[in-house]
């Protein structure tokens, strides 16, 4: 779907509501049981995550909120395999991530989880198109001959196909974030994780980006987003609030 084509001004379209209904019946895609993450600091041990238990279903659009230092980024890092839990079990898309090696995690992450960063983190010496092709080249999820066409399709879906041959530095912040989302979707992962994807964007562009991410959930992908912005809460089907590394609140954003 074209970014911005989905209306989302204060109410959910029928398709989204239907999707939210389906979530409860869908399989659990992410399961955390007793996950803790402790860091050694000069002041002693610091528990960034403390006995977190969560089930996240396919198709959910989840907001992870909390104050600074509450453990949001650590939770995202653990979910994506960027960091490993100190204890507990983590199952993602049927795989026990806590048992995977770093190399296995890299391959698993590349195929299963698309990551969107706050500051886009596009590689500056590659064109937008090449940035989108990069995960496909790393993971070989698609035949080489199809990668360029797929990258162009994704950029087209995000409305920046005409920017494909430009370097990231030549794009606006919003366009760069769209390119980063296209890159996250390159290997068609079932899960998309975004760490404050709108933190560096103006409000209109933020709305567009969130609308697109929410639409991904409608299409069956599981979307987890760390955010500070309450204005965007309407795009989420579920909000998990962290405090001091533990789940303080976990509730559906709207009634199905």
């Amino acid at each position: 779907m074209q970014l911005g084509a989905c209306p989302g001004n204060g109410h959910y379209p029928d398709r989204l509501l239907a999707a939210m209904t389906r979530v409860r019946e869908a399989q659990v895609l992410i399961r955390l049981r007793g996950v803790s993450k402790t860091y050694e600091t000069s002041a002693g041990k610091f528990a960034a995550l403390d006995n977190v238990n969560l089930d996240i279903h396919q198709g959910e659009c989840v907001a992870v909120v909390g104050k600074s230092g509450s453990g949001k980024t650590t939770l995202i890092n653990v979910l994506t395999g960027i960091d490993t839990p100190s204890s507990g079990e983590l199952h993602v898309a049927g795989s026990a991530m806590h048992q995977l090696s770093q190399e296995e995690l890299a391959v698993f992450r590349g195929r299963t989880i698309g990551v969107v960063f706050q500051f886009f983190q596009l590689l500056p010496t590659l064109t937008v198109m090449e940035n989108v092709m990069l995960p496909m080249d790393f993971c070989h999820a698609f035949p080489a001959a199809q990668r360029r066409g797929r990258a162009l399709d994704l950029l087209d879906r995000l409305g920046i196909a005409d920017q494909a041959s430009k370097l990231p530095a030549d794009l606006s912040g919003g366009q760069q974030q769209r390119a980063a989302i296209a890159r996250a979707l390159a290997n068609d992962p079932p899960i998309v994780v975004a760490d404050e994807p709108t933190g560096n964007l103006d409000s209109n562009t933020s709305e567009d980006v969130m609308r697109f991410l929410a639409a991904l959930a409608v299409d069956g992908k599981t979307v987890l987003t760390v955010t500070h912005e309450r204005d965007l809460s309407r795009f989420f089907t579920r909000t998990i609030t962290l405090r001091d590394g533990a789940v303080h609140a976990d509730h559906a954003s709207v009634a199905p």
Binding site: E103, V107, V115, Q121, L123, F138, A184, A186
Partner: peptide
């Protein structure tokens, strides 16, 4: 350094 982190995050193995 950070770029390598990004690459690893989007699926690059050590060999890549």
């Amino acid at each position: 350094t950070r770029e390598f982190g990004v690459m690893r995050a989007i699926g690059a193995r050590s060999a890549d």
